[in-house]
């Protein structure tokens, strides 16, 4: 019965073809495609502008906030205790009963534990703390998703392969089918989220995966998935699963 269902799924859509392709997918970080000077900017913390946010994150980690007057470190201790955490996000949160990004989890902590005013999704402090927490996992492989994230992964995969926008293109058409080929002067990357939040030279700023996805959808002239929406998180969760095994580079530089 199960086999029949799989067979029907294969016959009815490109999802199965995508799966069989990802088996032989030679995963590569976008870092490998970057010019040597851009790689050098990421390799040297003294010249990586994203480290400015990491430094702000360290101050925020120790700063007491909200009506409970608690700092992150009052619960978590030294930020080194966050080692490995970023490899597991987006992750299912039992407390929130949904899959959340690392940024959303930081916001949840802020609301629940500190009882402090929320930040906007792309606010500098959220990026700073995300970069600081992400940095603790630098070099560790992105973990595979578990059963609790399975639904989000499936939804994200469907969205990834769905054609959208005035250009009528799906994410998969570029980043699965044509990765490694030239789009104008740029080589199309596989699109693995190994370095978020990233310092994108195009932005001259640190930004989240959500912001990067907005740029992609902009390129195909499509409405973006709403900020913080379940679709948005689902795509990010699928990307985590798709990139599993690649080492975290946070905070990365990207062109």
């Amino acid at each position: 019965m199960k086999r029949l269902a799989v067979l029907i799924a294969c016959l009815s859509g490109p999802v199965c073809a995508q799966d069989s392709k990802s088996v032989s997918f030679d995963k590569r970080s976008t870092f490998d495609l970057m010019k040597p000077e851009t790689q050098a900017m990421q390799r040297d913390d003294a010249s990586n502008p994203a480290m400015l946010w990491v430094q702000e994150g360290r101050a925020l980690w120790q700063a007491k906030a909200g009506s409970t007057d608690k700092a992150c470190q009052d619960c978590h201790g030294d930020v080194a205790s966050m080692k490995g955490v970023a490899t597991r996000y987006p992750a299912y949160s039992a407390a929130q009963q949904k899959v959340v990004t690392l940024g959303q989890q930081i916001q949840f902590c802020r609301a629940q534990e500190q009882k402090a005013e929320p930040w906007t999704a792309e606010a500098r402090p959220v990026l700073a703390l995300s970069a600081l927490v992400g940095l603790q996992s630098r070099g560790l492989p992105l973990a595979k998703t578990g059963p609790a994230e399975a639904r989000a992964v499936a939804e994200g995969r469907a969205l990834f392969t769905e054609r959208r926008g005035q250009m009528n293109l799906s994410c998969a058409q570029c980043h699965d089918d044509h990765a490694g080929q030239s789009l104008g002067g740029a080589i199309i990357p596989q699109g693995h989220p190994t370095g978020y939040p990233i310092y994108r030279l195009e932005w001259q700023d640190l930004g989240s995966l959500e912001r990067r996805l907005r740029n992609c959808l902009n390129g195909v002239r499509s409405e973006p998935w709403p900020s913080g929406s379940s679709e948005n998180v689902a795509v990010q969760t699928y990307l985590r699963e798709r990139a599993a095994g690649l080492p975290i580079e946070t905070p990365a530089i990207r062109p």
Partner: peptide, 9 residues
């Protein structure tokens, strides 16, 4: 027959 086209387009 296009899907989720950005508003300006």
């Amino acid at each position: 027959g296009l899907y989720a086209v950005a508003m300006p387009y």
